[in-house]
């Protein structure tokens, strides 16, 4: 019985250590791999890290979409009702991308304050507003910055 018990104990220790290491590694890599959502207001206030992959989003400002006539390139602005940020994207925009629609873009902010998107998402439901965008809009209002003129076109 003794060796059996010893073996079991080793096994349990081995398991606990293994699980511990696994969880630690998981948490560490998780903290390295999350994509923060940054609102246009935060970007305007300089709170967004430059050169790190983040997500940005808001409503596409009406009349702001410019397309390149040669390629697929597109440039547009998004707003949270308080500040605007310019996004450039070279690729096919999603079906529901249109002016006034809420979108989320994944990409990096460059030193000129332009957001270079590698991916643009808009959900397949016109009633749907990406939850982060919804939050950003609410926050922009809560902040009391009702200077909606700034968000105008």
């Amino acid at each position: 019985m003794k060796p059996q018990r010893k073996k079991r104990l080793t096994l349990i220790l081995f398991l606990v250590a293994g699980v511990g290491i696994a969880v630690g590694l998981l948490m560490y890599s998780l903290s390295q791999n999350i994509n923060l959502f940054i609102t246009p207001t935060q970007m305007a206030d300089g709170e967004a890290p430059v050169g790190r992959t983040i997500r940005a989003g808001g409503l596409v400002v009406v009349g702001s979409v410019e397309r390149d006539s040669e390629s697929l390139g597109a440039k547009f602005k998004v707003t949270d009702g308080n500040a605007e940020v310019t996004i450039v994207y070279d690729g096919i925009l999603p079906d529901l991308f249109r002016e006034g629609q809420g979108i989320v873009a994944m990409g990096q902010l460059n030193t000129d304050g332009v957001f270079v998107a590698s991916e643009v998402l808009a959900k397949h439901d016109e009633n749907y507003m990406p939850p982060e965008v919804q939050d950003a809009l609410e926050k922009a209002h809560v902040d009391g910055k009702q200077s909606l003129e700034a968000a105008r076109y």
């Binding site: 890599s29 791999n33 959502f37 939050d135």
Partner: peptide
Amino acid sequence: LGKISVGASWFNTM
């Protein structure tokens, strides 16, 4: 602590 998403790259590395 804010709105984040865990990217596909994380799931792949795991």
